[in-house]
Nucleic acid binder design. Structure first.
Length: 117
DNA sequence: GGTCTGACTAAAT
DNA sequence: GATTTAGCCAGAC
């Protein structure tokens, strides 16, 4: 039996997982699109993660999601280009000279969606 | 309803 | 080593 119904659900699950992971990013920490995608089961879907967050509710700390360099690529979507950085600074996140988050100190990697509290 | 685009990333050329 | 291609998903045109 080759099943054909299972696939359908995974897609929606991806978005759902993205929201779950982002919502659980610890205070003062940041993670990357790729990391989220990987936890959601599709490592290469980093792009889709960004898309998902784009349509996410304001409840999600999307300012804690940066690209793999720690650059605030999504800041333009916060209304004010400076808002994202200010939010992170307010949480104690430090920035490098390049304007990127200090990933060595503040990068947080989700283990798995199910294991998340 | 086919094509393009996007808050990305890695591999291939 | 810089540029291009490929992969992912959903929405806009």
């Amino acid at each position: 039996m080759r099943i054909g119904n299972i696939m359908k659900k995974n897609k929606q699950d991806f978005f759902d997982k993205v929201y779950s992971v982002v919502a659980k990013i610890p205070y003062g920490k940041v993670t990357t699109y790729g990391a989220i995608a990987e936890v959601c089961g599709i490592k290469s879907a980093a792009r889709t993660v960004g898309w998902a967050i784009n349509g996410a509710t304001a409840d999600l700390p999307c300012h804690r999601v940066v690209n793999r360099f720690g650059a605030l690529t999504g800041k333009v979507h916060f209304g004010d280009p400076n808002l994202m950085e200010e939010l992170l600074r307010a949480e104690g996140v430090e920035f490098l000279e390049d304007g990127c988050v200090d990933m060595k100190k503040y990068f947080w990697k989700a283990k798995s969606v199910n294991n998340l509290h």
